[in-house]
Every structure is written in structure tokens, then in C-alpha cells.
Amino acid sequence: MSIRPPTLREKRRYILIRIEPAGAPVDQKDLYYVISDAITSLWGDLMAAVIMAAVVASQDEYVVVRCRRGTERELLTALSTITSCRDTRIALRIVAASGTIETLRDRIRRVKAPDPEYPPYPECSFDKKPYLIYQCNGQKIDVIEKGFKNTNRLFLTREDLEEL
């Protein structure tokens, strides 16, 4: 179809989403399929066609999802039902909604950089087991058990580590 003049185009909304945990390996295309599945599963094909969701941009842990104006509520509800992407456990946190992608890009730029106090992979101990610090952001510290067998992430705080 040819591009319509601006007054005849459908209005869109852009949703800024943060992927948790930080550093999760999520591909933009995989995420699109997961979102599409979630919408179809919750609302059905009919509503999925109305929402017209698409992943239009991604930057580090942030993703911009597009939808038709007026269907934000349905999209956000469907996004909250996403629990994994290609066997990687994730959670999508809604940060902001806007009429333009540029506003959301500004928002990403304003977000604080990760805490440099804890560089990745220094050792720590929790519950009498050695762990490697994987991610640190303010009070939040993600650790992975040392060794190659168990790579499950634990979600702790600074106080949890200082207490020991």
C-alpha cells in the first residue's frame, strides 16, 4: 500500500519497556514473537489485529513497542503476561508511553548509568556459598553461584551481602 498523507494515517502509541533482569540476552525478533503470542493468547486474533503490536527499537535493556492508539491498555495487560523469551526468564516493566519514539529515546538517555562501585564478577558469599556479583544497580545486586553447574541468578540487595 502506498504511504498515506499524515491526516489519513492511523495514530500510534509507543511504549517504553525495561527488560528485567538487566543483561538478559533477548533478541528483538524473539521478543516480537513472544509479545505477539501473549496478545493472541490473551485477547485472540481479532484483538491482536486491532492492536497491531510491533517492536520498533531496542537499546540495551530498553525496548520500544508500538501499538494502535486506544489499545494501550490491552497491550500493557498482554505484556504483563510475558514470563520468558526463548527459555530466558524475563519480566517486562512498563516505563513510559508516548506518541513519538524520540521522546522515549530521550527518556532512555536520562536513565542513570549502572553503579561502577561493583565491577562485574567480584566474589561474595551469601548463605555460606560463594557467589559472583553479576549486576549491580543502586541497592539491587544480582549474583550467580560460583562454579559451572548452577548458573541460576539470585536477586539480593546490598544489605543482604553486608549482613553476612
Binding site: 528485567e20 533482569p21 490473551l42 491498555r73 500493557l76 495487560t77 505484556l79 504483563s80 503476561t81 514470563t83 526468564r89 524475563i90 519480566a91 516493566r93 512498563i94 536477586f155
Partner: peptide
Amino acid sequence: HSILEMRAVRDIVGICSS
């Protein structure tokens, strides 16, 4: 069982409304 399974109040309101 994890912070990844926790949802925002707004999300839960959306789910309950549906």
C-alpha cells in the same frame, strides 16, 4: 517466587479488569 514473577499494581488492575 522471584522478582521476575512480581507484577506492578497497574498490571494487576489490568488483568483483573479483563
